[in-house]
């Protein structure tokens, strides 16, 4: 760790990118960097500011004038309202839906990460037959669209057959003299409508990306590390828990954010596997229920969208401190 200079120092010294004297950096180019960053940030923010302002306006104001016009008439209080937020927060079962969302999101974030980290380590640093093909196989599954999986998995949860191979029977009977008896085997899993079912579904759907991203990171860790650890007598489990996991914190944190966001904002998986009944429904479904079919209640949707943004942003901020430069570099030297 000590090998890298703490960021604070650089800021205060006010010169030199990454604390070096060798670069061409000067105040002019630093200002240029600031300007470019500012412009990009502004472009990115405009739509989101629009969302925030819209969520604070009355439905009539939303329909009659553009959201940016509020800057010209900021004092006109008749257009401002907190009613949208009140309506969303006080809507039936909002608190329960928020809780359900957490119960769904936390395990559905952690489970795929743990499973994928073990797999990523194995794919990176263990020798075994079929390793290459297994990895390619996992990554190739990235392309399977969620939508084709919903019906088969739901059937499985309801006790349907895993592989419906009955269609093979006539084919085999036609090609060969054997008479084939297919027996479909199913188990009454009864996972439909349970948190367990939805956790497992999110785990399954999130695994390919998790394995792919984490293997990329873990695989790029310096091999000297493993060698020296092994010379010290550490086995795979020790290397994994004491070396790999601490070193992979930035990668684990970034994937955790994405998986969390994805699960938190998911509508379809929750709807299909958990349902719309009040005791289990998640935030996105509760928000959707507020919005009428022909009544596009934009005022409620914007307020709801903003409320549901708060937690993911908190998670992002709190995980951001893990994205620290030089964790790996420091470890190599240490």
């Amino acid at each position: 760790m000590s090998a890298t200079s703490p960021p604070v120092e650089d800021t205060q010294s006010g010169k030199g990118i990454k604390g070096t004297e060798g670069g061409v950096t000067n105040t002019g180019s630093r200002n240029l960097v600031r300007v470019i960053v500012l412009v990009i940030v502004l472009i990115w923010l405009i739509p989101a500011i629009g969302l925030l302002i819209t969520s604070l306006r009355t439905p009539a104001a939303i329909e009659s004038s553009g959201w940016w016009t509020v800057f010209a008439s900021i004092g006109d209080t008749s257009q401002w309202t907190l009613q949208n937020y009140r309506e969303v927060l006080e809507s039936n079962g909002f608190a329960g839906a928020f809780l359900n969302t957490l119960v769904v999101s936390v395990p559905a974030t952690i489970m795929p990460i743990v499973i994928a980290t073990f797999a990523a380590y194995a794919f990176s640093w263990m020798e075994f037959k079929g390793r290459f093909l297994m990895f390619v196989f996992v990554v190739a599954l990235l392309v399977v669209p969620l939508h084709v999986a919903l019906i088969p998995i739901l059937q499985l949860y309801n006790g349907g057959p895993l592989f419906d191979v009955s269609w093979l029977a006539p084919v085999v009977s036609f090609l060969t003299p054997w008479e084939v008896v297919t027996v479909e085997v199913g188990i009454p899993l009864d996972l439909n409508g349970t948190f367990l079912g939805v956790w497992l579904a999110h785990t399954g759907f999130g695994l390919p990306l998790a394995v792919y991203l984490l293997r990329n990171y873990i695989g790029s860790l310096p091999s000297e590390l493993m060698e020296s650890a092994r010379i010290d007598g550490a086995d795979h489990y020790a290397i994994f828990t004491r070396l790999i996991i601490p070193l992979s914190v930035p990668a684990l944190a970034s994937f955790a954010i994405f998986q969390f966001l994805w699960v938190f904002n998911d509508f379809l998986v929750a709807l299909v596997f958990l349902g719309e009944t009040a005791d289990v429904r998640v935030l996105t479904i509760a928000l959707n229920a507020l919005n009428g079919q022909f009544q596009n209640s934009w005022h409620l949707l914007t307020a709801g969208a903003f409320i549901s943004m708060v937690l993911p942003m908190v998670v992002f901020f709190s995980l951001q401190r893990f994205f620290v430069r030089g964790m790996t570099a420091g470890a190599v030297k240490g």
């Binding site: 057959p161 895993l162 592989f163 479909e184 085997v185 899993l189």
Partner: peptide, 25 residues
Amino acid sequence: LRSRLAVLATVPIVLAACSINVYEE
């Protein structure tokens, strides 16, 4: 073929570790 079919479906049986229903085709 028959034995293979049965085995393909073994995965969820072990997974669930609970009662198994065998359906007729």
